[in-house]
């Protein structure tokens, strides 16, 4: 078995971490324990952590300028954990400090796609460097879907499929994201929308820690309803019914005479027929997720654990007070 490579994308959008249901320091404490758990499983396991900030997606770990002195050894901490924790916390603090207090930048959407793409590039580089790893990406998102990001996200999904990378997605709080659901579904990953943020660590460990081989033994939550809606290329709206160019497969929210992507002209008859067939009263708010036959779990046994998930975490939450993971060095 090859060692696992886990790339984690942390969505640190300041706009959404302003008054969150889960304080950022608690969130990071949970994340650090989860990252340690990944390294704990095998010494050869590797890790890359990216932050998605407004307009940029810096690599947090491994530290790109690794010239820093290694932290002094502590007899009570396993050295790799200590290095990981101190680098990640220091780099996040650095990145957050360097945010300009410019209002327009702070509210700008975070570069989730940028981080995702960087993670894929990083994995590609690992593959080129002959080191054989089983790669995985975990996206921890707090922002809602950004419909302008539809095409880049789909492109990332296709490259992930090509690289055989599983994308897991976890919406820690905030509304469900359609695109991450699709990313997880199309790459064979798992998508979770947390309801109980205080049990974040338990969710992370049970659903996202096991590599794909283990997921064949111990099930992870799968989605039985996936929102497969796409965003149109013309107005970047998420559409219920779209019109697809028969030549280049671009999606439009209304019939167009000329495809804006490939410049194909459509016959006027077709346009008229399509316009006639459109439902007149298109609801402004599209109905919620459509269950799709492809998304229903194939095995009945995979269905059951889904309903068990809140049970385990519920117990965790009840007694959670004494089980707060305390990670050294996470001072915020």
């Amino acid at each position: 078995m090859h060692p696992d490579h886990l790339a984690v994308v942390l969505d640190l959008s300041p706009a959404h971490w302003h008054r969150p249901p889960l304080p950022l320091d608690r969130f990071l404490a949970h994340i650090l324990v989860f990252l340690n758990a990944h390294i704990a499983a095998r010494p050869e396991n590797t890790l890359a952590v990216f932050a998605a900030l407004p307009g940029r997606a810096p690599l947090l770990y491994p530290d790109p300028d690794a010239a820093d002195q290694p932290p002094p050894a502590d007899p009570n901490v396993y050295p790799p954990f200590r290095r990981l924790d101190s680098i990640v916390t220091a780099r996040i603090a650095h990145e957050l400090d360097s945010l300009t207090p410019d209002e327009s930048l702070l509210t700008a959407p975070s570069a989730l796609v940028g981080a995702l793409t960087k993670a894929l590039c990083y994995i590609n580089r690992l593959n080129l460097a002959t080191s054989q790893v089983d790669p995985r990406i975990l996206v921890l998102s707090v922002s809602p879907d950004l419909s302008t990001a539809y095409i880049p996200i789909m492109n990332s999904i296709f490259s992930a499929q090509k690289l055989k990378v599983t994308i897991d997605a976890c919406q820690v709080f905030g509304p469900d994201t359609v695109f991450l659901q699709q990313a997880a579904h199309l790459t064979g990953g798992s998508y979770l929308h947390l309801t109980e943020t205080s049990a974040l660590l338990q969710y992370l460990i049970m659903s996202f820690l096991p590599p794909p081989a283990i997921r064949k033994v111990l099930a992870v939550p799968t989605q039985d309803r996936i929102d497969f809606r796409a965003a149109c290329f013309c107005h970047k709206n998420i559409v219920d019914i779209g019109f697809v160019c028969s030549v280049c497969l671009s999606i439009f929210c209304q019939p167009v005479p000329v495809c804006s992507t490939c410049r194909t002209k459509f016959p006027i008859k077709t346009l008229q027929r399509l316009n006639a067939s459109r439902p007149l009263a298109t609801p402004a708010t599209p109905s919620s997720a459509r269950p799709s036959p492809a998304a229903t779990p194939a095995q009945p046994s995979a269905e059951t654990p889904r309903h068990r998930a809140p049970l385990l975490t519920g117990e965790f939450a009840q007694n959670g007070a004494s089980s707060q993971p305390v990670t050294n060095g996470s001072k915020y």
Partner: peptide, 19 residues
């Protein structure tokens, strides 16, 4: 990270048949 005891039956629901 669980404080409470889990019954084997609960845990078993997570296990796929082949595993």
């Amino acid at each position: 990270w669980l404080e409470s005891v889990i019954s084997p039956a609960t845990m078993l629901t997570w296990v796929l048949r082949e595993g």
